[in-house]
């Protein structure tokens, strides 16, 4: 019934021992270039603030497309990151389409042979985890099926990045997994918390309790669940039910 799409299935089957977000970005981008009708892909951090860097680019063109946006301060990825909406440009030569970032689109036309750009925000609520930027040398939209797959890839990739960045299990994160240890089996990670209302609400409550960002608040919830060996959803329910309160000291 629920067919998540080809590339999404590839991502869901990725092993759990990816050491850092650059390696994860590489796996995501390569899955996209393999399975979607595109020529290259990159994942960059593009928040409104100054934190801008490319985690991985599948080729020099993909890298240049993001570099130009860092330099010029405009472009589809920055728009995707700040608006939270996907920005799909089937033809960069279409002036109406690209009028929101004229300098960037001129640079793309002059310096590359790229014709189509698809920028998808990687987000979880207010948490911005980066932008997936894909390009093609031939103009045109993605097919309906591929676009559905790409959307679902963006969702899955965002959860994977968030999972990795907030993982309280240092052993796993550092790759020091014991060969036959309990956590060593290579089964898909459970990321069902991604859709749980109480986890979102608890994240907001911890934001207010500690005056920290949503992604730090979420990391605190996970760290608590990890040290107490409880399910994240149960910890979240305790926070929402006001049985558990985070303080700066704890």
């Amino acid at each position: 019934m629920a067919d998540p799409g080809r590339v999404t299935r590839v991502l869901q089957a990725l092993s759990t021992d990816i050491p850092d977000d650059r390696a994860l970005a590489e796996r995501i981008c390569l899955a996209c270039t393999d399975g979607l009708d595109i020529d290259g892909a990159a994942i960059s951090l593009m928040t409104a603030s100054t934190m801008r860097e490319t985690l991985f680019a599948s080729d020099a063109t993909a890298s240049l497309l993001d570099e130009l946006q860092f330099t010029l301060g405009e472009g589809p990825c920055i728009e995707a990151a700040t608006s939270g909406r996907p920005v799909l440009v089937p033809d960069v030569d279409d002036v109406v389409e690209t009028s929101r970032w004229p300098v960037y689109s001129n640079a793309v036309v002059e310096q590359t042979d790229v014709r189509a750009i698809f920028a998808l925000p990687l987000q979880w609520g207010t948490i911005n985890l980066g932008v997936l930027d894909m390009y093609r040398r031939a103009p045109g939209s993605l097919s309906r099926v591929q676009l559905g797959d790409a959307m679902s890839v963006a969702d899955t990739a965002a959860l994977m990045l968030l999972d990795l960045r907030t993982d309280p299990d240092q052993d796993r994160r550092d790759g020091n997994r014991p060969g036959a240890g309990a956590r060593a089996e290579n089964k898909p990670r459970d990321r069902s918390w991604g859709n749980r209302t109480e986890v979102h609400q608890a994240t907001g409550m911890v934001v207010a309790q500690l005056g920290i960002s949503a992604s730090d608040a979420f990391a605190r919830l996970r760290a608590h669940a990890f040290t107490e060996q409880r399910l994240l959803t149960h910890v979240a329910r305790d926070v929402v039910g006001r049985h558990l309160h985070f303080t700066k000291e704890t």
């Binding site: 609400q201 608890a202 907001g204 934001v207 949503a214």
Partner: peptide
């Protein structure tokens, strides 16, 4: 949902 959490707190 996150904003509800902030306001509720």
């Amino acid at each position: 949902e996150q904003a509800k959490g902030v306001l509720a707190q």
